[in-house]
Design a protein around this nucleic acid. Structure first.
Length: 264
DNA sequence: ATGACATAGGTGCTATGA
């Protein structure tokens, strides 16, 4: 079974690429971020024709998240937004997924963590507050759902290995100690960084700036993550960044991350 | 140097991203 996350940077623009990729790889579960469209413009029919069901939380212009499941898989107990968190920004969607191949259900939490703009800014404070709220909500979720996947665009690097120029970007946005402390606090709840379990080669990133040939020079960051609970860790078989999608015409600036889990 | 690209909204430019 394959579980993927992809920041598409506009679902309207990237829909043809998403449909191509779903047809090629047939992931069982997909979390999408940065839909950048309101709920009534979500392309449900196109996704259904591609063999996927979906739930989504849209927003005009900014943010927006969705979960897809390959038929005949199903999505239940859908939650949009962090409960009790008044927030105009569409950044979290969770569902209990019964995957296509059968086996035990999974609790899947897709997130688009705030960017944070710059340390010390109001947006940075919002990012840290949002992460604290996520953690407070996630702790009881993990008690209830032993088989849990938290995945999406975290906008945080774990450590210097996730940064193309760690010295030059020291304590800049995505690389600050404050952000990394919040990310580690999520792991401390009983989660594991799925990609790091498989000892990826140096220079494994998920995002590259559109400018200055950053992708060609592999000047990137690893900020998109799949975190899996203790119960799922022994089932992890592979985890990879789909770098090839970043090479296609009119790409998203993010590449997908794909986790392969053994059934059951 | 706060730019370079890309996207949305709207129709000239600003806001935002990472």
């Amino acid at each position: 079974m394959q579980i993927a996350t992809w920041n598409v940077n506009s679902l309207a623009v990237r829909l043809p690429q998403l449909l191509d990729w779903l047809a090629e790889r047939a992931p069982d579960i997909v979390a999408l971020q940065e839909l950048k469209l309101p709920d009534d413009r979500f392309p449900l029919e196109a996704l259904r024709q591609a063999g996927y069901d979906a739930v989504w939380l849209g927003q005009k212009t900014y943010n927006g998240v969705a979960l897809l499941v390959r038929a005949p898989g199903t999505l239940h107990e859908v939650q949009r937004h962090l409960p009790g968190q008044p927030d105009e920004q569409a950044r979290l969607i969770a569902a209990t997924v019964h995957p296509a191949g059968g086996g035990e259900p999974l609790r899947v939490v897709g997130v688009y963590v705030p960017n944070g703009q710059a340390p010390g800014s109001d947006k940075f404070a919002y990012k840290l507050r949002w992460l604290q709220s996520l953690r407070a909500w996630l702790a009881p979720q993990l008690q209830r759902h032993a088989r849990l996947v938290l995945l999406g665009d975290f906008n945080i690097t774990f450590d210097d290995r996730d940064v193309w120029d760690p010295e030059g970007l020291r304590e800049t946005i995505h690389c600050t100690t404050a952000e990394r402390t919040e990310l580690q606090a999520l792991l401390a709840l009983g989660l594991h960084d799925a990609l790091r379990l498989f000892d990826p080669p140096p220079g494994t990133f998920t995002w590259w700036d559109y400018r200055q040939l950053a992708f060609v020079k592999n000047r990137g960051l690893r900020i998109d993550h799949i975190l899996i609970s203790d119960a799922l860790q022994p089932l992890a078989r592979a985890c990879q960044v789909e770098r090839a999608l970043r090479k296609r015409p009119q790409p998203s600036d993010h590449a997908p991350v794909v986790l392969t889990l053994a059934a059951t």
